[in-house]
Design a protein around this nucleic acid. Structure first.
Length: 878
RNA sequence: GAGACUGUAGCUCAGUUGGUUUAGAGCAUUACCUUGACAGGGUAGGGGUCGGGGGUUCAAAUCCCUCCAGUCUCACCA
């Protein structure tokens, strides 16, 4: 069959993906093999594939395919996350676009819309993963809100409550006024932003004097219930017992004294708004101050604020500033840069707010989870994230898990007046209530908590819940603990740490053995790729343009564990070029005519022996790289082997003269080598390897690259490799000489050398001379006892001196200069070695092997100097 | 404010417990080649006093101290 001169990924990728699926290669059921399990970090159910997913899932696919080839029972579980807050926000927006307000809907009506949305758009992202070549067991697809996972969450909530590890408390929380829900500390992102510091004066009661405070939030003046100063601040000592009048609303408030106040900041006087600042709240509690909440749940001013009612907090600020200015309460305004927190999901400014929420007591959960990472029961790659993890775990704070949303698992708590009953079902809760209050209580008296649970409260159970582990042990006991988690370091607290805690809490062991942290995908300017910046390439378009293999190669070739991937089209271009290179190499070998009667030439045999050793060396290196998740390194080593060793050196060596046939032995060897390379490369580039696998041989049903056997490394002949390196080096030198003298690269020349044991050993090797003549286009390659009578441009490889006898007037001056430079370098080298060796302490203290190495370096160096000196003498004599 | 990490070629990074020439790879770059698998190719170069300065050692990119620069995490002062 005629092959196109270009590899066309689009034609083959879909074909093979279908083939794999219909042959059930991705499927896994427990058996007696060793399991290798990966759980996908579930993407948002309504999400669309972006670069981060592509990188993340490509790495998982590499690991899972490698395990599959190694004969393990590879199980990759796919799934999606209901992403409570993000999805609810999307549904709310969609409804608003249709003219429907969430507040006009009942809970059930809203949930119907949300499910409809999920059913329509959910799982698109999983379909997109297929384009990338991802090979999870699709039959195992799960969703954090499906029945099984829902039940797991409820069970766990009740279980924690019974263990006394859950509590409900009124405290200052992070409030997202857009989503109208509380957020956990981890869902708030802080950044420095420009803002203003307003100096506002408050008149003192029964006086014409003023006290001036500084604030960044003048709108909260409406909720002021005190002014605080430092007890030792002499400026304000005389104000003990006085009161100040809040501007505009003319409300008298006490002046209090508290160590919390920083005398140096602003005026040293601080307004206290207990309802809208965590520190103010604490001070308020301490001094028993009144709490005036002036904001609604959407951060508009409430009637309690008296002024600007219904205005947004930002408008209210503008209005109050201009009113304060007009009435001469505003003293001055300064620029200020300070840290503000924004909601991770909606990006709006987080509002501190006092409210009653559910919390998980994290201290007891954290202890075993911290220990597990500290003593390497769980390994982090790269290891540096252990520090981050330790720091967070040792300063862990309780986890706020309730959310004022509808999309999610509804909290299984029922209230009767002030009393709470936590149970898996309303039925049980009712029973509990009856036990306590007798039969007089009716079911309608119980009110279920309106809130749902944080999304992460379902995802932290992922390693257990995907196997329905809270209900059945069947799959769990086989697959758990999983092998490795591949995820971004940005969710180390939100997800990774909590999964570890859950693992120890309910399974008494780690949920995964290794964690591979991927970096963030950034653009060339190191900006994180994001939709809002518009700097993220369209993932599917990229696959279309460069092929899934090209994209996979591009991303993997440049993404060390934990390091960011600086994305550049160049990377995927390289991937595409590599595919094309492989394609054409196959095309070339397949296009050769085979002569059955031909003996394998000695040079071909040499080439085969050499590349076999080189291959084995590469396999060892790959195994090593995989062990520590150095995926880029593994791929690059394989790339170098295939392109440089196999294609550039091996194929060029065995290439018959144009139009001539090749011997059967070498041909078969080539096909075999291609086959091995397919298997080795398959985890990284699954499609092209499967295609070539089938191009090079007729295959039986079920004999596919995806389920081939991963090769073991055989013997490595180091001596052969080093001899071959000398050959390569001679060839390069000859090419360089041709290059520099503007000779056609294929013009044959004579090369002479001076005999010594090193080159002699190579020359007796069968095929060495033949290979050299072939590769370097030499007319002759002859040894001499001395260099006295040989002409030509000299060069040195190893310890041997060579002369390229080109048909060109030798520029003696140039040759001398070149040699002198070389001599200088060698002398410098020898001096440094001599210095080491003449140091008695070195000779006495260093291990014998090291000293021996230095001695060898010295003698080799001296031999080279000797050779160069003789050459120089000869040239100078003319 | 507390802590962690990083600094090696123009760019992205290797360099494994100090010891294979006076430091490597890929990409980029330069010169040359090119109608016979591949111009998405081939060949050969150039390019780094390993952030600066001290110290330990026979020996330091590698260990210690210090300074400089950058990144990140946590906590937060209105």
């Amino acid at each position: 069959m005629e092959l196109s001169s270009r590899y066309n990924p689009n034609e083959v990728e879909e074909k093979w993906y279908k083939h794999w699926e219909s042959n059930n290669y991705f499927k896994s059921t427990p058996d007696d093999r060793e399991p290798f399990t990966i759980l996908i970090p579930p993407p948002n159910v309504t999400g669309v594939l972006h670069m981060g997913h592509m990188l993340n899932n490509t790495i998982q696919d590499v690991l899972i395919r490698k395990a599959r080839l190694e004969g393990k029972n590879a199980c990759w579980v796919p799934g999606t996350d209901h992403a409570s807050i993000a999805t609810e926000a999307k549904v709310v927006k969609k409804l608003r676009d249709e003219g429907i307000k969430k507040s006009d809907l009942s809970r059930d009506e809203f949930l119907n819309h949300a499910w409809e949305w999920t059913d329509n758009y959910g799982g698109i992202i999983l379909q997109q993963l297929k384009k990338l070549g991802a090979s999870p067991d699709w039959d195992r697809t799960v969703f954090t809100m499906d029945d099984v996972r829902y039940k797991s969450v409820i069970k766990v909530f009740v279980n924690l409550y019974k263990k006394g590890k859950l509590y409900r408390k009124n405290r200052m929380v992070n409030w997202d006024p857009k989503a109208k829900t509380v957020l956990s500390n981890e869902e708030v992102l802080y950044s420095e932003e420009n803002s203003k510091l307003y100096y506002v004066r408050y008149r003192l009661e029964n006086s014409d004097d003023y006290i001036t405070i500084a604030t960044t939030r003048p709108e909260t003046i409406l909720g002021d219930t005190a002014i605080a100063v430092h007890p030792e601040d002499e400026r304000y000592a005389h104000l003990k017992g006085s009161r100040a009048i809040v501007p505009l609303i003319d409300k008298p408030i006490p002046i209090i004294f508290d160590n919390y106040v920083d005398k140096e900041f602003g005026t040293g006087a601080l307004k206290i708004t207990p309802a809208h600042d965590p520190n103010d709240y604490e001070i308020g509690e301490k001094h028993k101050l009144e709490i005036v909440n002036i904001l609604n749940d959407d951060a508009t001013i409430s009637p309690a604020g008296q002024l600007y009612i219904g205005e947004s907090r930002f408008n209210a600020r503008k209005l109050i500033v201009s009113d304060l200015e007009e009435k001469e309460f505003l003293v001055k305004t300064e620029d200020l840069v300070h840290n503000v927190g924004r909601s991770e999901r909606t990006n709006v400014l987080v509002e501190p707010r006092l409210s009653l929420q559910w919390y998980v007591d994290m201290k007891s959960l954290a202890a075993p989870a911290l220990a597990a990472v500290e003593n390497n029961e769980i390994n982090f790659y790269p290891e540096k994230y252990k520090n981050t993890y330790r720091h967070w775990m040792t300063n862990i704070r309780d986890w706020c898990i309730s959310r004022q949303l509808w999309w999610g698992q509804r909290i299984p708590a029922w209230y009767y007046n002030e009393d709470v009953f936590v149970a898996e079902t309303e039925e049980e809760a009712f029973k509990l209530a009856q036990e306590k209050y007798g039969n007089g209580i009716s079911r309608d008296d119980l009110k279920q908590d309106e809130d749902v649970l944080d999304t992460w409260f379902s995802s932290w159970l992922w390693p257990i819940s995907v196997f329905d582990g809270f209900e059945s042990r069947e799959d769990l006991s086989y697959y758990y603990p999983t092998s490795v988690l591949v995820t971004g370091w940005d969710i180390i607290f939100l997800w990774v740490a909590r999964m570890i805690m859950a693992g120890y809490e309910w399974e008494n062991t780690f949920p995964f053995k290794d964690v591979y942290f991927t970096g963030m995908v950034r653009d060339k300017k190191r900006r994180k790729m994001s939709k809002s910046l518009g700097n993220s390439p369209d993932a599917l378009k990229l696959i279309e343009d460069y092929g899934a293999d090209g994209v996979r190669f591009g991303m993997l070739s440049c993404s060390p564990a934990g390091g960011d991937l600086l994305f550049d089209d160049k990377l995927v271009e390289n991937g595409r070029n590599f595919s094309n290179k492989i394609w054409n190499a196959v095309r070339f070998i397949k296009g050769l005519k085979i002569d059955q009667s031909l003996e394998t030439p000695a040079k071909n045999q040499l080439a085969q022996d050499w590349i076999t050793s080189q291959l084995n060396k590469t396999i060892l290196g790959l195994n090593d790289s995989f062990k520590t998740y150095r995926i880029s390194e593994a791929l690059m080593n394989l790339y170098t082997f295939i392109w440089n060793d196999f294609f550039s050196w091996f194929i060029e060596l065995i290439k018959p003269e144009y139009g001539k046939p090749i011997d059967r032995g070498t041909y078969d060897f080539c096909i075999q080598l291609f086959e091995t390379c397919c298997t080795l490369l398959h985890p990284f580039m699954p499609f092209i390897t499967e295609e070539i696998w089938h191009q090079i041989k007729d295959r039986k049903e079920g004999e596919d690259c995806i389920n081939s056997q991963y090769p073991e490394a055989g013997l490595i002949d180091d001596r052969l490799i080093s001899d071959f390196n000398l050959l390569k080096s001679i060839v390069s030198n000859v090419r360089d000489i041709r290059n520099k003298n503007q000779m056609p690269p294929k013009e044959q020349i004579d090369v002479a050398f001076i005999n010594n044991p090193e080159i002699d050993a190579c020359m007796v090797r069968n095929g060495f001379r033949e290979a050299l003549l072939h590769k370097a286009y030499l007319k002759s390659f002859e040894g001499h006892e001395t260099g006295e009578k040989i002409d030509g441009i000299s060069f040195i490889c190893g310890k041997t001196k060579f002369f390229a006898q080109i048909q060109k007037e030798l520029d003696v001056e140039e040759e001398i200069t070149k040699l002198e430079e070389e001599l200088k370098y060698q002398q410098g080298f020898v001096v440094s070695v001599e210095k080491k060796l003449s140091n008695e302490r070195f000779v006495n203290n260093a291990p014998e092997a090291v000293v021996e190495k230095e001695r060898k370096k010295l003698s080799d160096g001296q031999a080279r100097i000797d050779a160069i000196t003789k050459l120089l003498e000869k040239l100078r004599k003319g």
